[in-house]
């Protein structure tokens, strides 16, 4: 485990997480959530859990982002609060 890389990825995870819940644009939140999942995937693979990383990349960063985008497309793009 290379610690500078690890710290960069962890801070990216935290930044993406906070940005995803504070942004008003729901499409942007969906994309930030995909970025969050991808950073988590990198973190899993850094820790050697390759199977979990693979699942995170395919489910979290791939299909769930598509589902969020489809839901935003059918509802509204602006958040109420």
């Amino acid at each position: 485990m290379i610690w500078p890389l690890d710290i960069i990825i962890v801070s990216m995870v935290i930044i993406c997480g906070i940005a995803a819940i504070s942004i008003k644009d729901l499409l942007g939140a969906a994309i930030l959530f995909g970025a969050y999942s991808f950073m988590m995937c990198l973190l899993w693979s850094v820790m050697g859990a390759v199977d979990v990383a693979f699942t995170e990349a395919s489910v979290g960063a791939g299909v769930s982002t598509v589902f969020f985008v489809a839901a935003v497309f059918r509802t509204s793009r602006r958040s109420k609060d």
């Binding site: 390759v50 199977d51 990383a53 693979f54 699942t55 395919s58 489910v59 791939g62 299909v63 598509v66």
Partner: peptide
Amino acid sequence: SPGGGFQGGVIFGAAIILFAI
């Protein structure tokens, strides 16, 4: 190798979703 039913199934579904998009 890493992988299995869940990951492969999701990738297969994603291919069909890509076609739909």
